[in-house]
Amino acid sequence: MKTLVIIIHPDLENSVINKRWIEELKKYPEKYSIRDLHSLYPDEKIDIQQEQQLIESHHKIIFQFPFYWFNCPPLFKKWLDEVLTYGWAYGSSSPYKLADKKIALSISIGINEEDYRESGKYKYTMKQLTAPFEITFDYVKADYRPFFAFYGAEYHIIAERVEESARDYISFIESL
């Protein structure tokens, strides 16, 4: 069964990391279904039923996005708010359609990893800053997994690091 990779990047054309990750994913069309939410929904009118059907038809789901302002792009939050509906994703009589599905985040982060420590510049770890996603997916009974990250995208865009991250990304997904 294919892994669904949902891309939420508001400026993919100017991306280095996310664009390279997508190129790597596209080498394996038999393994990955790729959805670019910004190209699908430029007006941000999400086809909830279609998104729910895609979630139902995949066992592994990756949300790939850049981390900025210590959060996800607004379209990802909107997607969560609209797609994870009461009676479908959760609720007293809900079928919990995400139950036991493996969910992970793949995040490109502009800041260096050492700045995301309790003793670092930003005082919080990425695990702490991504806790709302973990809680959200736990709430809908999904099997939330640790995230994959590329740190220092604003500072260290070295071709070798980018290539290594693309290979590591595929290995990460395969290990879920």
Rank of each mutant, 00 (worst) to 15 (best):
H9M: 10
H9C: 06
H9E: 11
P10W: 06
P10Q: 10
L12E: 04
E13S: 13
I17K: 08
N18R: 00
N18E: 06
N18C: 03
N18Q: 13
K19W: 11
K19G: 04
K19D: 11
R20Q: 12
W21H: 06
I22G: 05
I22F: 05
I22Y: 03
I22T: 02
E23A: 07
E24M: 14
E24Y: 15
K26Q: 15
K27Q: 15
Y28D: 10
K31V: 02
Y32K: 11
Y32F: 15
Y32W: 09
I34M: 02
I34A: 03
L37M: 15
S39I: 01
S39P: 01
L40G: 08
E44H: 11
I46D: 13
D47Y: 05
D47K: 12
D47A: 14
E51S: 05
Q53G: 08
L54G: 05
S57T: 02
S57W: 01
K60V: 12
I61Y: 08
I61A: 09
I61R: 09
I62P: 00
F63M: 02
F65A: 00
F67R: 00
N71R: 07
N71Q: 09
C72W: 07
P74W: 11
P74I: 11
L75E: 09
L75G: 05
W79P: 08
W79M: 09
D81M: 02
E82T: 12
E82C: 09
E82F: 07
V83L: 09
V83W: 11
L84F: 15
W88P: 07
W88G: 05
A89G: 10
G91W: 00
S93C: 03
S94H: 03
S94V: 14
P95E: 14
Y96I: 00
A99W: 02
A99M: 10
I103H: 13
L105A: 09
L105Y: 02
S108W: 01
E113T: 06
D115F: 09
Y116S: 07
R117A: 12
E118Y: 06
E118V: 10
E118G: 08
S119M: 07
G120E: 13
K121C: 08
Y122M: 14
K123P: 08
Y124C: 01
Y124P: 03
Y124V: 02
K127V: 03
Q128E: 14
L129P: 07
T130P: 08
A131C: 04
P132M: 06
P132H: 12
E134L: 11
F137C: 01
F137I: 08
D138H: 14
D138F: 13
V140S: 08
K141A: 11
K141P: 00
K141C: 04
A142N: 07
A142K: 05
A142R: 03
R145T: 12
F147I: 00
F147D: 06
Y151T: 10
Y151G: 04
Y151P: 01
